[in-house]
Amino acid sequence: MSETARYEVERRIRGSIVLTAAISLYSAFIVWYFTVLEGVNTEEVFEELPPAMVDAFGIESLSTIEGFLGAQIFNFVWLLGLGLYFAYMGGGIIASEIESERIDVLLSFPISRSQLFLEKFASILFPILVVNTVGGVAIYGLVLAVDESIDLTHLLLAHVLSIPYLLVCAGIGGVFSVAVNRTSVAEKGAVGVVFVLYLIESIVGGADEYDWIQYLSPTQYYEPTPVLIDGTFEFIDSAILLVTLLGLLLLGQIIFSRRDL
Rank of each mutant, 00 (worst) to 15 (best):
S123N: 02
S149K: 12
L216C: 07
V196E: 12
I13L: 07
I59Y: 03
V77T: 01
S149C: 09
I98V: 15
S257A: 15
I139C: 02
V18R: 06
L155W: 03
T244P: 11
F233K: 02
T232P: 09
V185L: 15
A71N: 07
I93L: 10
R113P: 01
L248H: 03
F74L: 07
V40I: 14
W78M: 14
G67D: 02
A122F: 09
T183E: 14
A87F: 06
F117W: 06
L250H: 11
I111G: 02
C169R: 08
F121T: 00
S100K: 13
E38Y: 11
A122H: 05
Q253L: 12
T20P: 04
L106Y: 13
D260L: 08
G70E: 04
L249Q: 01
I172Y: 02
L125P: 04
E43Q: 14
F117K: 05
S108H: 08
N41M: 06
F121D: 07
F121E: 06
E47Y: 10
E99M: 06
D260S: 11
G192L: 06
F57Q: 10
I213P: 04
G189E: 08
F235C: 10
T225A: 02
T20A: 06
L62R: 01
G58E: 10
G92A: 14
P164V: 00
R102W: 13
H154L: 09
I229M: 05
L118M: 11
E43M: 13
I236K: 13
T42I: 09
I255W: 12
T244D: 08
V180S: 03
A87W: 03
V54Y: 08
K120A: 02
M89L: 15
Y85N: 10
A21D: 11
S184R: 13
A190Q: 03
G252D: 03
V243H: 07
E47K: 15
I203P: 08
G247V: 01
F121W: 05
S238C: 06
L197M: 07
Q220H: 14
V134Y: 09
T219C: 11
V196Y: 08
L166I: 04
S238F: 07
R6E: 12
L197Q: 02
I30V: 15
S177C: 01
S108Y: 07
I229K: 03
G90E: 06
I200D: 08
I98N: 12
I128T: 03
F68I: 03
A170K: 02
G90S: 03
S96H: 11
I213Q: 04
V168T: 00
V194T: 09
R14S: 14
F233L: 06
S257K: 10
V204Y: 13
